[in-house]
């Protein structure tokens, strides 16, 4: 099975801070990591490779330093990686990102399966996976929590899709695109040989020209959405939890509402 995984380099959300003046993310001194959900996509691909053989490739669109994220997944066992990087790609929304990734993936060849994390922890849109599937004209299943079976002869697979109130069992033809949730597996550890390979591996970089993209469809220019403002939500007010018997709670509530002048009449 030849599998492709899409990953994204994101700031480590453990220490994310907003600049109170500009309301934008403070990037200085914040460590970059591979989007945690994408690591489950990588693990899914590696497990399928362990079972079925074949190759696992990973791609990302991002600035030159995003190659660090690609090296990271190589240390876990990904065979090959590619970086789609160009100034023209900057400021892309989910549509432009999906378009660019699709152009890049077509360049790399055919795959039996494309796997993405369910969403990135910085943007939280969960749109790039499905958008990419549309661009590539592939069936897609989001929020996959388990791969039930794969039949390479008939080129189909069955998966479980996590829902709010249970799960769906979905069958799809291959090739297909999946987005996975963290329930799907437990991450392995990198290997020493993998880390050594990651340090040395040559990472091909594809520019806008290499990918033969339509210049009006990439980056900020190609984006249908524009970010007008980013702001931190106001902190919630204090909450009080009333305890005791129902009558006691009603009494406390009434007293409170009267005291805060929400109610002006005392009800007897």
């Amino acid at each position: 099975m030849d599998i492709l995984v899409c990953i994204k380099q994101v700031p480590d959300t453990k220490d994310i801070k907003l600049d109170p003046e500009t309301n934008t993310l403070k990037r200085e001194g914040v460590e970059s990591i591979v989007n945690p959900f994408d690591m489950y996509a990588v693990e899914t691909a590696l497990m399928l490779k362990d079972e079925w053989g074949g190759t696992v490739r990973a791609v990302t669109m991002g600035p030159p330093q995003a190659e660090q994220a690609l090296r990271e997944v190589v240390s876990y066992g990904v065979d090959e990686v590619a970086l789609f990087s160009d100034r023209a790609f900057a400021g892309a929304d989910t549509w432009a990102t999906a378009y660019t990734l699709a152009k890049g993936i077509r360049k790399l060849g055919d795959f039996d399966l494309i796997i993405c994390g369910k969403q990135a922890v910085d943007g939280d849109t969960a749109q790039v996976g499905p958008g990419l599937a549309q661009q590539l004209d592939l069936p897609f299943i989001t929020f996959v929590r388990r791969i039930v079976k794969i039949e390479l002869d008939s080129r189909t697979m069955v998966v479980e899709r996590l829902m709010d109130d249970g799960y769906d069992v979905v069958e799809t033809s291959l090739p297909a695109l999946l987005t996975v949730v963290k329930e799907i597996n437990e991450l392995r550890v990198p290997s020493l040989k993998g880390k050594m390979k990651a340090k040395k591996i040559d990472i091909p970089i594809y520019s806008a020209a290499d990918l033969e993209v339509d210049p009006d469809s990439v980056g900020l220019t190609g984006s249908y959405t524009q970010v007008i403002e980013v702001f931190a939500p106001k902190p919630r007010g204090n909450r009080i939890i009333l305890e005791g018997e129902t009558e006691e709670q009603v009494e406390k509530l009434l007293n409170g509402l009267t005291k805060d002048k929400v109610l002006s009449v005392k009800i007897d």
Binding site: L187, V189, P190, K199
Partner: peptide, 18 residues
């Protein structure tokens, strides 16, 4: 050396994660 650092980091990661 870089290799020794790699071994140290990796062992620490496996120990902490697993």
């Amino acid at each position: 050396t870089e290799e020794q650092k790699m071994i140290q980091d990796l062992a620490r990661q496996v120990a902490e994660e697993k």
